[in-house]
């Protein structure tokens, strides 16, 4: 049971490093997915550890939230592309419509 949590921590850290280093918003979203999945794995490991299923419900809700986040994020990326803005998180520093 230790090892599941360690793997979860490892995936979370890889995702965090990716969010810091990568510059394309697409890949940043992918790394966010990695971090959310690491959280899911930890939730399910603890659910198995305590022998009740509520952690799995949490994991499903986290999945729903991740799907929403991806939908809106990809919508923003498509809107950026339509307006010929640079697809780059460092070039987009201001909130202008």
């Amino acid at each position: 049971m230790n090892w599941f949590v360690v793997v979860s921590a490892m995936i979370f850290c890889i995702g965090g490093a990716g969010v810091i280093t990568r510059r394309s918003p697409l890949v940043t979203l992918l790394c966010l997915e990695l971090m959310l999945n690491a959280g899911n794995l930890a939730l399910i490991a603890f659910s198995r550890m305590w022998g009740n299923e509520e952690g799995q419900i949490f994991a499903i809700i986290v999945m729903v939230v991740a799907a929403c986040e991806v939908t809106v994020g990809l919508g923003v990326i498509v809107a950026m592309y339509r307006r010929r803005l640079p697809i780059d998180v460092d070039d987009m520093r201001e909130l202008h419509g």
Binding site: N37, Q56, V70, L74
Partner: peptide
């Protein structure tokens, strides 16, 4: 970890639907 339903949902929803959305957007952008 005995989480059958979550594993199933992971494959269908994540690896299926969400990743198809990603592939479309990567192909578009």
């Amino acid at each position: 970890l005995q989480a059958e339903f979550v594993a199933f949902a992971q494959v269908v929803v994540y690896a299926g639907a969400v990743m198809v959305l990603y592939v479309f957007v990567v192909g578009y952008v």
